[in-house]
Nucleic acid binder design. Structure first.
Lengths: 180, 180
DNA sequence: CTCAATCGTTCCGTTTACGGAACGAACCAT
DNA sequence: ATGGTTCGTTCCGTAAACGGAACGATTGAG
């Protein structure tokens, strides 16, 4: 038993049975063996990415629906240990001219988190959903409450802090142009 | 030489090098062999789910950051004005291969908003900051409460609704691949 | 220069995920 | 009953994903 064995088996079986499809039929339409699908649903196999794509495709669901517990918290990534800001990387989009990173950010109250300048052209976009965030260029920070959105150029020193006693929660979208 | 080579190799290498970690070091901290990680980055292997979890965990990113859906087919901008859902466009990023739209979304309770399929390759990413949202594929919607994040392929019918008496507030990031 | 350390790739034996086939069980028609 | 069909599981040979070790290339120290 793998400690990390997410229970994709029962989730898969539930998805399949919700559609009234038999195991044999799904295996056929996914182009995989019945033995593979059976073992996958029973949790006795450690599937290959190719197998997962085949099954997800046949079910018409994104791979994330198969692999992730809906609403389960993703892995916590503490970027700056012991600092005011912790962030979790939710999604990464690699584009030819830029990389987008979507993060969930938690800012503890009472501390001002300084961030060094990023590369030229990097912009940060924050949408606050709890607390009051004070963030942006170090010499001219912006304020945002729940539901509000602020953005700034990140190629100069910038800060994150809160206003009031509560921590702030927000999503952070970072756009980084590709380096030459 | 997989017929269906998802491009997780280059994405993985990029993520690793962005952190300044060597292949050997990442393999060690992930508890996998160097040969496995090398082959994975070179795209010559078809990784196991267990391997993917090990690597994603060691990098501190969710598995979705590694296995984003491959497709990059045509696009068509369909916006969904509806009674239950109102949205405010915050930012638009035009990239050569994709357009990103960042919106703030408000979903009223008691109504289920149906959305027709978007073009293939369009993905939607929602971060909830108030209320409980039930959204995603019409036949397998996902649940998300405050602070939680869900995403799905938008090329099949999908819905937005709330759970409970309160309206839901969220940010919505739509990624639309550009016409090929 | 030599030597040691570390880089990423390749080689290779072991482990295991794969699909085809066989299996018993359940069901339906005759 | 009886034969035919489909169900999900198990058996088994093959293909390949795995980790350890060896490789050449590169780097840094003395």
């Amino acid at each position: 038993m793998n400690g990390r064995d997410t229970d994709i088996g029962s989730r898969l079986r539930r998805l399949r049975e919700a559609r009234g499809i038999s195991l044999s039929a799904l295996a056929r339409s996914a182009g995989i063996g019945k033995a593979t699908l059976s073992g996958l649903e029973l949790g006795t196999r450690n599937p290959t990415l190719e197998t997962l794509y085949a099954v997800a495709g046949a079910l018409g669901v994104p791979l994330t629906a198969l692999v992730l517990e809906p609403g389960a918290p993703p892995t916590e990534a503490v970027r700056v240990p012991g600092a005011a800001v912790t962030a979790t990387l939710l999604e990464v989009f690699e584009e030819p001219t830029a990389t987008f990173e979507l993060l969930r950010m938690r800012v503890r109250p009472g501390i001002v988190q300084h961030s060094p300048p990023h590369a030229p052209g990097v912009t940060e976009h924050v949408t606050v959903y709890a607390g009051v965030l004070r963030a942006g260029p170090a010499d001219a920070p912006l304020l945002a409450g729940p539901g509000e959105h602020i953005s700034w150029q990140a190629d100069i020193p910038h800060i994150y802090s809160t206003v009031g006693p509560d921590e702030a929660l927000a999503t952070l979208l970072i756009r980084s142009p590709r380096q030459a």
